[in-house]
Each structure stands twice: as C-alpha cells, then as structure tokens.
Amino acid sequence: MKKIKIGAVLFLLITLTALCAPLLSPHLYHETHLAIKNTAPSTLFLFGTDELGRDLFVRICFGVRISLLISLAASGIDLIIGLTYGTLAALSGRRIQILLGRLLEILATVPNLLLATFLTILFGCGIRTIIIALSITGWIGMARMVRAHIWQLQTEEFMIAATSLGASRPHLLRYHLLPHLFDSILVTVSLTIPSSIFAEAFLSFLGLGVQAPLASLGSMANEGIVSLRYYPWRFFFPAGTIYLLILSLNLLADGLQERRERC
C-alpha cells in the first residue's frame, strides 16, 4: 500500500508540475536568450538554460508532456490490441485458438526493442512513427497475459457455475471475466507505460528520438551528453526526470502487483 502511495504521489507530482508550471513561469518554451546560454541552475532559471538560452525547467515540463504522450498513446494501443487478441485467442474455436496461439508464441520471441528501433530507423523519427513502432511490439505481452488469465479463470468454479446456470457468452465476458481481468490488466498497463518511457529514451539516445523543435525528455538528455563535462545539468535534469517517472510508475506497478497477490 505504501508503494502505491509513494509511486502515485510522485507520478502525479511530476505530471501536475509539467502541466501547470509553464503557466506560472515567466519564461516561455521557445524563448531564447542567447546572452545567458548554458547557465547553471539559479533562482531565475530553476534548472539552468540550454545552448540557446532557453529555460530548462519549462522545457523539461514540456518534455514530460511529450514523453508521457508517447508512452500513454503506445500503452493505450497496446492495451486495445492486446486485450482483443488475447480474448480472441482464449475464447474462440479450437482451430483458431491453436493458430492464434502459435502465432503469439512466435511473435513473442521477436525482440521488441530491436524491432522498434529498426522501424524508427526506416520510417523516420517523429512522434507518430515512434508511437506506432512502440505499439507494434508492445501488445504481445498484454495479449499473452490476457490469454493465460482467461484460460485460468475459465476453470475456476464461479465460471462453471455461471455457465451451468445458462449464462450466454457475452454476458459471461462482461460481468464475470472482465472484472477479474481488470486487476491484471491494471498491473500490466502500469508496467507498459514505464517501459515505453524507457524505450523512448532508448531511441533518443540512438539519435532516433523526437526531432527539434519538439523535445522529449530523452532527446534533451541525449543533447546534454555532449556538454556533460561543462554543463552537466543539461543532462542530469532531463535524465533525472526520466528516472523519477520510471521509478514512480514501477513503484505503482509493484504495489498493485503486491495488492493483487494478497487477495
């Protein structure tokens, strides 16, 4: 319970700051002050400035938004595709079950991140391509989980009881299976989001992240590497934010997982 709280609070803190702080800050996202480029953190510029004199704090807030946009979108798509595929694979007729199942097994061995990297290389890096590239491989984990869980639930007594009382398929699905699946889905989603953030950072470090003028946390961190020796904050603040985002979500996921196991 403690984990869920810490994770959730941290995550909300970061998200809310990212959403509201720019409204309160005197600096604009794209406002450049070449005279004060690369200054260290101070009271005027909380996180310092980058090579064009832009306020890093505001930029990071926007970066959080973009990184979250990408990961939430990718995770959402994963959820939809994975849930559908998993349900179909678990509940359809014998032959289709075997076919879908085999396909899933084969797809599961394909390395996700590598394929996503390759897709981004080929189709160029923009928010849309990155989201698609991340979703194309991410749904497999969700599908597997859903399929296994439904199979397991089917043999549970309450399902057999409901079926013998004459419940129809859609009814079973909606009122009996889904509520039980909800917990597992929640845990899986809370794990896909941080791994998408991680993947987006990974792509950025390879130079495949979001391109200027947009900046995600990953691309900002990547740009900060070059000037690490002299202006370390340009790396540490974006990187630190990435870390805290992933950490908070992992804590949340862990806590949810523990709570689920306890029941």
């Binding site: 690490l228 870390y243 862990d254």
Partner: peptide
C-alpha cells in the same frame, strides 16, 4: 533493488562516466 531497477543503463553509464 527498488531504486536500481528503474535506472536505464544508458543513464547509469553517463552518471558513472561523469
């Protein structure tokens, strides 16, 4: 382990380098 599991190797690499 809780803190470590969220730290991407890329970030750690640069941290250590710094």
């Amino acid at each position: 382990t809780t803190l470590g599991i969220s730290l991407p190797s890329a970030i750690l690499a640069i941290l250590l380098q710094y």
